[in-house]
Nucleic acid binder design. Structure first.
Ligand SMILES: [Mn+2]
Ligand SMILES: [Mn+2]
Ligand SMILES: [Zn+2]
Ligand SMILES: [Zn+2]
Lengths: 140, 140
DNA sequence: GTATAATCGAAAACGATTTTCAATAAAGGT
DNA sequence: ACCTTTATTGAAAATCGTTTTCGATTATAC
């Protein structure tokens, strides 16, 4: 029974706790911005130098399937991963430094209603991402 | 001076009008859903059987840079292209048949204000995509 | 028509991701 | 602690979508 919630969830779904998974997990938990597989690899190898890139891919896939991390889409690069929040949240990204912040509490029901009527679609889900400048990039 | 607006715009930016570009243009103009490069290739070869996949990539890149088409991101596949609308619009996708509809007139200013205050970010742009079931997939 | 340079397609190169497979090591039972 | 089982690992190879290279083609201007 590991104290870390991600490791606990990994273990509870039948996974073994390995050095590789600990390293990737720590990197993803502490990242303030979305990381590509290679970025995760570089960061995690500081904790476990024997780690292979293949295992990074496999671990990211597992963490994503457990909804502990999520994919972040940029206009070009769509293979970056970020820790996921609890429940329904959206991402706000700094265009300059990449910092990512999660927020919730959109109120789009009225929009869905209107668009649904206009188009004949039944709206099931949505995807909202905001871009801007974080406080430090704005002032600094 | 071609009567087709896309071809006219291509020509006005110094492009030559070739069979390959005509074929890709026609496919993208008439598509009701986002198409991957290979799907464009398959469809366009019915008009120009000598067409090569490389040229499809190059033409899609050109059409995208002219903002005549746009990239559509799915959770996995992010290399599908759809004709772009005029001005600021968003995409509504049918989860079942893939049909894509554009809409405008979101009213997210209040949300941006609130999130900006909460996070210290200055919101610059956004990205909204809706998913649902189109009329035909709902009833049929 | 001819000249010129843009564009083309085939083949090769590239790079990110996935698969294969023998070695390793985590977890559970003794 | 030790052994057994089997999930997991990393290196190497395979795969696959995309890009580059390059000689041949062809749209356009004269
Ligand atoms: Mn939402
Ligand atoms: Mn909008
Ligand atoms: Zn920033
Ligand atoms: Zn549909």
């Amino acid at each position: 029974m590991p104290s870390d919630p991600w490791l606990a969830q990994l273990q509870s779904t039948g996974c073994r706790l390995t050095a590789a998974r600990r390293a990737v997990t720590e990197v993803m938990q502490s990242a303030e911005r979305a990381l590509t597989p290679v970025e995760v690899y570089d960061a995690a190898r500081k904790r476990d130098p024997r780690l292979g890139l293949v295992t990074v891919y496999r671990t990211l896939e597992k963490l994503e399937s457990l909804r502990l991390i999520q994919r972040v889409h940029h206009s070009q690069e769509c293979q970056a991963f970020l820790k996921a929040g609890e429940g329904h949240q959206h991402i706000l990204l700094c265009e300059r430094c990449g910092r990512a912040v999660l927020f919730d509490g959109d109120n789009l029901e009225a929009l869905f209603e209107r668009v649904g009527e206009q188009t004949g679609f039944e709206i099931k889900s949505h995807w909202l991402q905001l871009y801007g400048l974080c406080e430090e990039c704005r002032t600094g």
